[in-house]
Design a protein around this nucleic acid. Structure first.
Length: 560
RNA sequence: UACCCCGUGGUGUAAUGGUAGCACAACAGAUUCUGGUUCUGUUUGUCGGGGUUCGAGUCCCUGCGGGGUAACCA
């Protein structure tokens, strides 16, 4: 692949070909059509990036359209959150926010037209007989006894359905196609059903509602959509999409299907995510472990990282499952560039610098972001008693352990070299305190005599430390595929990771972190990227671990 | 089962009849005041069988495998 000519996925290739041939007079019009019945997740982000991205790249427009044809499940609460999430991702639809419900009257008029042309009829069979009459995959269906009602009777019945004269389920409007069609969806599909239920936008104006198949293509048509991009599971619906547009003789967009995004160690279906919320496995849709956009946002993901990931995920026609690590790597890449560094100790153990004066403290310079000199530096207080990470000391160091151990010298980040001279244990044999001496000559990080150390530790001055709660997150599911288990008595929730949340109540932070605010991007040196949680208060600061740093040492230990 | 779609390293994706490439992962090394970052190198692939062709990952046939659908959901 030539660097100067970035790869075009097959959808973009179709768009480019259409532009070249002038199929749509140079127009590119897409849409993102969520149903307002749940929150958006990372899978939707891929669709958003594709639809809005194509519009941007080819000088076209992308509409936001709520596909609200099923009032039983839909609510304005979801409309608001969806708008918010799309904006957060970085896309804008200007004044082109539409609803399928905007088109209810037009859809109704078209339905009457299809009745008049004997292309649709009112069927009064109960639901089970309708599905039974549809036959099976290998057996053709049988015609409904109501299939040959006259146009007049159909029109009359359909109008009375609309007028509210019948209870739910009494009648439906069906397209008259072919009950023997090898494609089940084309065996007289349902266009309208009766539902006496409040719609979040049209209230009680309607008691009949169009089905997805009858509404979607025509909504696209009304909006002048050129490329109707959807996921693979709608491939089967394309013949129907085409049938309605052709039967009505209206503008006929091209439906193109692409592969939806799947990730390891999580679930993506709205139904399952809702179940996790309702059963309390997570704290809500914005729980930082959720793959929902709100969850990712609270976790500390940046829209830039999500977009880069979606772009890298690729657009094809085969099912693909990406390792969640790929998403995390895009996040690290973005955060590495942008996050300011700070020091925080999550599992503290005390270090006493025995040759450092008791009542002395000094302010040392620490670089904010080695990847960005413009980020400047800050002062970090140093004193005789410090906290370091318990993991960074070993009384009897294993092979290749480079950190602090008896007799060993290491560097304290932005401070001095220290050498461990002694340590104290409690009755349980647990190390409670480490004694070190420091070398005043090594301020600035290097020894004048040129001697080297193999490790640099982060630390926090005990008397200056700020206490905070830190929430450490891990994958929601410990299995790559939550559905991959042998025992039939188990279900997908058996793969829920019991360690997906680990709360550290009393972490010690360098004082500068007291100023951290929601939205700040922070790296705790050597630990990972963190953000301020929405639960955070001045009295009880709360940080979320967004993602760990890569850690070769931890990896090598885990493999043992 | 019927209909539809899809099979390229571990994963994700290129090659549009003409040298099977890229990214991530893995492994090895260099650099480094983060066991981070950065840099270098290495390993690993066209589902099988037939055909068409000078030449097939690509086209055809066939087998196998995976997925979707079979709602008065979207």
């Amino acid at each position: 692949m030539n660097e100067s000519v970035p790869h075009r996925d097959f959808v973009r290739q179709v768009v480019e070909e259409d532009l070249r041939t002038g199929k749509w007079d140079g127009k590119v019009q897409t849409r993102f059509p969520p149903e307002p019945n749940g929150y958006l997740h990372i899978g939707h982000a891929k669709s958003i990036c594709l639809n809005f991205g194509i519009a941007e790249e080819y000088n076209g427009l992308c509409n936001l359209r709520f596909d609200d044809t099923n009032p039983e499940k839909e609510d304005t609460e979801y409309v608001d959150s969806i708008r918010d999430d799309v904006r957060w991702l970085g896309f804008d639809w200007d004044d082109r926010q539409f609803y399928a419900s905007d088109y209810f009257q037009q859809l109704y008029d078209w339905a009457e037209e299809l009745i008049r042309r004997d292309c649709a009829y009112v069927c009064s069979l109960p639901p089970d007989e309708i599905s039974g009459g549809r036959g099976t995959a290998s057996k053709p269906g049988i015609n409904s006894p109501f299939r040959d009602r006259s146009v007049e009777e159909n029109l009359d019945l359909f109008r009375r359905m609309k007028a509210g004269e019948f209870p739910d389920g009494a009648h439906v409007l069906r397209a008259k196609i072919d009950m023997a069609h090898p494609h089940m969806l084309l065996r007289d599909p349902i266009m309208y059903r009766i539902r006496h239920i409040e719609h979040h936008r049209t209230g009680s104006e309607w008691c009949i509602y169009p089905t997805y198949d009858y509404a979607h293509g025509q909504s696209d048509s009304i909006e002048g959509i050129t490329h109707s991009i959807c996921t693979l599971e709608f491939e089967n619906h394309r013949p129907l999409y085409d049938w309605y547009c052709d039967a009505l003789g209206i503008h006929h967009p091209q439906q193109i299907e692409f592969n939806r995004l799947n990730l390891t160690h999580t679930v993506m279906s709205k139904r399952r995510l809702l179940e996790l919320v309702q059963e309390g496995h997570v704290s809500g849709w914005d729980d930082p472990r959720m793959p929902s956009l709100r969850g990712l946002r609270r976790r500390g993901y940046t829209p830039e990282a999500v977009r880069a990931f979606c772009r890298a995920a690729g657009v094809t026609k085969h099912n693909a499952t990406l390792d969640i690590g790929v998403l995390e790597n895009h996040l690290r890449e973005d955060l590495n560039r942008r996050a300011e560094r700070r020091m925080a100790v999550l599992d503290p153990i005390k270090v006493v610098i025995t040759n450092y004066p008791e009542d002395q403290a000094e302010e040392l310079d620490a670089v904010n972001n080695p990847e960005d000199t413009a980020a400047g530096s800050r002062k970090v207080p140093f004193s005789r008693e410090l906290w370091i990470e318990r993991d960074d000391f070993h009384e009897d160091p294993p092979k290749k352990f480079f950190r602090l151990a008896p007799g060993r010298e290491v560097r304290l980040r932005w401070a001095y070299f220290i050498t461990c001279t002694d340590f104290v244990k409690d009755d349980d044999g647990r190390v409670t305190e480490i004694h070190c001496t420091y070398d005043p000559e090594t301020l600035g990080g290097d020894a004048p005599d040129g001697r080297k150390v193999k490790a640099t530790l982060h630390w926090v001055s005990a008397q200056h430390a700020v206490a905070a709660e830190v929430r450490l997150y891990d994958h929601l599911f410990f299995r790559e595929d939550p559905d991959d288990f042998d025992d039939p008595s188990l279900d997908w929730k058996s793969g829920l990771n019991p360690d997906s949340l680990n709360v550290v109540k009393e972490a010690r932070l360098e004082p500068a972190l007291a100023a951290a605010r929601e939205g700040d991007l922070i790296q705790f040196e050597r630990l990972g990227y963190f953000c301020v949680d929405s639960d955070s208060t001045a009295e009880n600061p709360v940080f979320n671990r967004t993602v760990t740093l890569r850690d070769q040492w931890a990896k090598s230990q885990k493999q043992k």
